[in-house]
């Protein structure tokens, strides 16, 4: 019995590194967000254009971003724009990203805007 448990523990340990590590916020932003918000985070991604009734948010806009709480940003990413009274053009990413990944994205948004919620820029 003990041996079996040991073998199971060893197998689990061997399998652990094969699990993909959570990507950094920056890597996630590059993968999922650049397409609309742009490689500089200023809202000028390749998808921005006249077919969009609302242009993508400029994440380097410290004044705007400081007025949004981390919870609101998390919700916008997880549930999409309409969940926070914003555009449907921002889709819900909750089916593609884990809570941990969305939290990392929120932290990266704070790096991009160099701002915190409520703090005057």
């Amino acid at each position: 019995m003990t041996e079996r448990l040991l073998v199971a523990a060893l197998l689990l340990a061997a399998a652990w590194p094969a699990e993909a590590a959570t990507p950094s916020g920056e890597a996630l932003y590059k993968t999922y967000c650049w397409q609309c918000h742009g490689s500089r985070g200023t809202g000028h991604g390749i998808n921005a254009g006249e077919h969009m009734s609302v242009q993508p948010r400029d994440h380097t806009d410290a004044k705007y971003m400081a007025a949004r709480s981390d919870e609101e940003l998390f919700r916008a990413i997880q549930e999409g724009g309409p969940a926070v009274n914003k555009s449907v053009l921002m889709p819900p990413w909750g089916g593609a990203l884990s809570d941990e990944e969305i939290s990392r994205l929120v932290a990266y948004l704070r790096d991009l805007c160099r701002c915190r919620h409520g703090a005057a820029p």
């Binding site: 397409q35 609309c36 991604g45 390749i46 998808n47 254009g49 077919h51 969009m52 724009g81 555009s87 449907v88 053009l89 921002m90 889709p91």
Partner: peptide, 18 residues
């Protein structure tokens, strides 16, 4: 209603590019 056009073209030259 669904916002799919952000990323997809619905005719040559019109719509998102990713």
């Amino acid at each position: 209603f669904k916002g799919c056009i952000a990323c997809h073209r619905i005719e040559p030259g019109y719509g998102g590019l990713s």
